[in-house]
């Protein structure tokens, strides 16, 4: 917190390079709420059937291809990313330890506990719900795409081909559907081998830890999403390092922390800008008196006018 105090407007420059390291905790968003729900993905259970993709596409009216078409495994030959017509995709990774059983990784919006996209959105079109989901109100959106710059997982997709009313597209954790009692997200409800578990984030973390403790040979000791970028609603268990499974290696701090810290220190109660304004006003008066007779004097002293 001391960083925030000394990073006043005036000394922003001199102090920042020396300060280096991590910024203070983000002011913007609190810790995960008790109600926050998420999904635990046990990737050792996933068989790559892609039924979650089908369920998601049907739930959000993205494509109406029949379920059978999802049995096509040729899509696994290339790594895929989410786009405007697919909020979740499953990728396949070779498994050297057990070539018969490749590893499948389902990806979608991680629904961060402290989402960078929500911090970035200048009109509040993206919002973090108490229930855990990061939701989007298209009518507010101006289409600046700063959320996409901010997202550490490169999740949001944009309707570039829509000339008039393009929207940002991403998984909503089936926010409306899960508001109803007993309902889980479409992908979770569909998952045949029970690789996906929907529930309170705190319960899911406990479950993940139990699983790791019970089968230390089956899982690496890392719940992806427990701490990454400040924590995410989607949590993953895997048998080998996530860096080898297409997941980014991200520190524990929310990525927006530094930007928010600077932002909030510079604009603390609007005081620093007002102080600069006052100082300029004083300069204006002082120099007016002094400069009345000084006309066309070569100005050799440039640093005087530093603002």
């Amino acid at each position: 917190m001391n960083r925030r105090q000394f990073l006043g407007w005036g000394c922003l420059g001199a102090a920042a390079p020396l300060a280096g390291g991590r910024a203070a905790a983000s002011e913007a968003s609190g810790a995960a709420s008790d109600n926050a729900r998420g999904v635990l993905v046990d990737t050792t259970e996933c068989v790559g059937c892609r039924k979650c993709e089908w369920a998601c596409n049907r739930e959000h009216h993205l494509t109406d291809e029949p379920l059978e078409s999802y049995e096509d495994t040729s899509v696994f030959e290339q790594a895929r990313r989410m786009d405007t017509a697919a909020y979740t995709v499953v990728n396949r990774f070779d498994n050297a330890r057990n070539p018969e059983r490749p590893i499948f990784m389902k990806v979608q919006c991680m629904h961060c506990v402290k989402p960078a996209c929500v911090s970035a959105c200048l009109v509040g079109a993206l919002r973090k719900q108490d229930a855990g989901a990061v939701t989007y109100e298209g009518w507010k959106c101006i289409g600046c795409r700063y959320c996409m710059v901010a997202c550490p997982f490169e999740v949001p997709a944009y309707e570039y081909d829509n000339a008039l009313t393009p929207l940002v597209r991403k998984c909503s954790l089936c926010f409306e559907r899960t508001q109803r009692e007993g309902e889980s997200p479409a992908c979770v409800a569909m998952c045949p081998p029970m690789a996906l578990t929907f529930g309170r984030r705190s319960d899911l973390l406990a479950l993940a830890r139990e699983k790791i403790a019970a089968h230390p040979d089956r899982y690496i000791d890392h719940v992806y999403g427990e701490h990454e970028a400040g924590g995410t609603s989607w949590l993953y268990l895997a048998e080998r390092s996530f860096a080898t499974l297409g997941f980014p290696t991200i520190g524990d701090a929310p990525v927006q922390e530094l930007a928010e810290t600077i932002q909030h220190s510079v604009f603390k109660f609007g005081l620093p800008p007002l102080m600069v304004l006052g100082a300029l006003g004083l300069f204006m008066k002082a120099f007016d008196e002094a400069g009345k007779d000084a006309v066309r004097k070569p100005a050799a002293s440039g640093e005087e006018s530093a603002v």
Partner: peptide
């Protein structure tokens, strides 16, 4: 929209 008070989002640098 950014100028409309109900949509102000003070955490955003943008």
């Amino acid at each position: 929209h950014p100028a409309w008070p109900t949509m102000w989002q003070g955490n955003s640098v943008l």
